[in-house]
Computed example of a mutant assay.
Amino acid sequence: MSTTFTVDFFCSVDGYGMAEGWPGYWGKEGPELIEDRMRTFAQDQVLVFGATTFREFREFVVEYDEPYYNSLNELPKIVFSSTLEQPLGWNNSTVLNEDAVTAIERLKRTTAVPMRSHGSISLNRALLAAGLVDRLEIMVFPAVTGRAGAKALLHGGAELDLELVESTVLDGRTQKLVYIPHLHGEIPEDAGPQRRNRSGQ
């Protein structure tokens, strides 16, 4: 029994997950983007959060009205935190007070339901560095936020080689890129002889 872990990240062209003074979705929300989110969260999966992102989404689903928020409410959720306690104020949520890397490695081996984490910068940086992420889905919005940008997932993190498996343009402007990440310098176990030879191994 094993499963996959997907990191799902929204960012500007310069790699920032948010920017002071900019609206949600960097002002680029469109029907195809929302349809993509609805398809994404309609899947059978467990959502994984760090404490800060969990608190933010717990408020978002009450204060705002997006069609896919019903799915967020219904899906099972895990939040890693040493301070949050039950009840968590968001249905179908469980808190784990343990090391996230150790827990996700165990859950990937012992459960069959896919896991997905959106945002959660510190958590997902650590999971990428540990080689526990199977898919990296990046939604790149057509904006450069410059000095206003913050919460960059990939800045200062692990070095990665990315294998592009999907590329989609939504609403004619926002690009969804789906990668299989590999820690730089490591050769995937399923790499064939030709690929290994090209890498000099």
Score class of each variant (00 low, 15 high):
57 F>M: 07
195 R>A: 10
90 W>P: 06
153 L>M: 11
194 Q>N: 10
81 S>W: 03
112 A>W: 02
41 F>D: 05
8 D>Y: 08
32 E>A: 10
65 D>S: 11
114 P>F: 01
80 F>G: 03
3 T>N: 06
171 D>V: 14
56 E>W: 05
200 G>L: 00
142 P>A: 05
185 G>K: 01
26 W>G: 08
7 V>R: 04
168 T>K: 14
186 E>A: 06
126 A>M: 06
4 T>E: 08
81 S>N: 05
62 V>K: 13
14 D>G: 09
9 F>T: 09
160 L>M: 06
28 K>N: 08
102 T>F: 10
123 L>I: 08
138 I>N: 00
124 N>M: 00
63 E>W: 14
19 A>S: 06
194 Q>E: 09
22 W>E: 09
67 P>L: 03
155 H>V: 13
38 M>V: 15
163 E>C: 04
47 L>V: 13
28 K>L: 08
37 R>I: 10
70 N>A: 15
117 S>V: 13
124 N>P: 02
96 L>M: 07
173 R>S: 15
160 L>R: 10
126 A>P: 01
118 H>T: 15
54 F>G: 08
158 A>M: 06
3 T>G: 08
93 S>L: 06
91 N>V: 07
149 G>D: 05
100 A>P: 12
51 A>F: 03
131 G>V: 10
86 Q>R: 13
55 R>G: 09
119 G>S: 03
133 V>Q: 07
186 E>V: 07
43 Q>K: 11
183 L>Y: 04
184 H>G: 11
22 W>P: 03
179 Y>V: 01
172 G>V: 10
6 T>W: 04
148 A>Y: 04
197 N>Q: 03
8 D>T: 13
138 I>V: 15
8 D>M: 02
